[in-house]
Amino acid sequence: MEAQLQQLKEEALQKIEASQNVKELNDVRVAYLGKKGPITDLLKGMGKLPAEERPKMGALVNVVREEVTEVLEARMTLLQEQAIQEQLEKESIDVTLPGRPVKTGNHHPLTRVVEEIEDLFISMGYEIAEGPEVEKDYYNFEALNLPKGHPARDMQDSFYISEDILLRTHTSPVQARTMEAKEGKPIKIICPGKVYRRDNDDATHSHQFTQIEGLVIGEDIRMSDLKGTLSVFAKKMFGEDREIRLRPSFFPFTEPSVEMDISCFKCGGSGCNVCKKTGWIEILGAGMVHPNVLEMAGYDSKKLSGFAFGMGPERIAMLKYGVEDIRHFYTNDVRFLSQFHRTEV
């Protein structure tokens, strides 16, 4: 019986070794260790043995069973690992194949510029004011110190709807309307929007374009406040090391009036084609609100003062992104629009 047991063990160990997969090994387990297997049979057959041999034999059977089980489990672990390995190999993919696209659109570049400016000024306590694109001559011109027949009206040939209604030529009427509505109280606003002028569309002119203006009115608002505000704007928008300079200019609604240049962000001031070799780039017009404008809106120009500034998002986008033709902004070519997808530092 002992020999029989030894032979069984050898057989089992051989079959375990020969098993090539989990299923074969399980068959071996069932065949040798199962309830109907030969080892169980041996245990069952122990009844025929003399009583004094039974414990010894039982122990022996158990030892063999444990031994076989141990080898089988080890083999099982190995085969399982192999199986997983095979599975993984079968499942491997070409990771260089394209992913499922997530298609998203993006802001128009002008909106991108306008929102950037809006957010900067919002962080300094400004609100965003809007107004109609079709305006009364009064708000577009008269309330801004441009009475009928004023020579400066020639500067901006306009689209009239009737004798006293026109497409606004700048966003300044929003300032006039806001001042009227605020009834003498302080103001701090940014006015973005579409404006219209009688121009033939070409690379540098567009009969429709956008503007963004700012207005601050309060007690003791000084020109130094304007200069400081514009400097913050220039640095945020065009880089921390930008310098600004003011040049005298003329706008009927401000006095004094200035134009602001920034040091060229491309060459840093040494001269290049962006700054036309001057080292400076003209960015915006600004000034101290003309007392006539304040008075017309019901503000006491002796007590309150203010500053205003205005710029063209088209120009800023053209400078910033190197766009050479203003018409790109209104053609809506997807190959143009989609270039303004990514974030900027």
């Binding site: 919002i122 400004y126 609100e127 701090k188 007690e219 608002i221 130094s224 406040d225 003011l246």
Partner: peptide, 15 residues
Amino acid sequence: IPMTLPVEESKPGGL
């Protein structure tokens, strides 16, 4: 001209 910022009652801006 020096660079300053308007001195006034501080009010939050916003949309």
